[in-house]
Amino acid sequence: MSKAHVYKRDHINTDEIIPARYLNTDAEAELATHCLEDLDVNFVKKVRPGDVVVAGDDFGCGSSREHAVWAIRGAKVQTVIARSFARIFYRNAIDCGFYLIESAEAVNKITDGDEVEIDYDAGVIHDKTNGRKIKFQPLPDFALEIIAAGGLLNKIAAELKG
């Protein structure tokens, strides 16, 4: 069962997702214990594997630290659904093979605590709590290729080893 953790604020930035005071490590499991700490200090206690984070515009703005994606992935969050994403965060997520969903409708219709099920191929979020099926635009093909390869570096490693 995947639960939605909804933070409707815009501009949730990388300093809130993973504060710089924890950037003295790149260990994903350790970063995960501080995921979203400066936004919601209780997030890591509440989140369960497969849950989703829902946010407003410009999610992930600020630093280029991929640690922000790792902290979220390390906390076993399935995906982030936002009205829009900041550029470097969006790119880092794709490069890491981590799927992001851009959907204003989903952000409007999903309530904190709702149970959701996502069909990535069809581009449908099923909010089982309110019964709505919300369509979203799946990622473009080049991004799906990177994600299917398990991330940009796996794709490059395969090409280099030819």
Binding site: D26, G62, S63, S64, R65, E66, V69, I88, R91, N92, D95, C96, G151, L152, L153, I156
Partner: peptide, 25 residues
């Protein structure tokens, strides 16, 4: 590997910040 890499554009260059995976690539 830093978001403020965009600074170098003052010298008529294209420069942008990237994360660690792009940096590795």
């Amino acid at each position: 590997g830093d978001s403020h890499t965009c600074t170098y554009g003052a010298l008529a260059a294209f420069s942008t910040g990237i994360g660690s995976t792009d940096l590795a690539a």
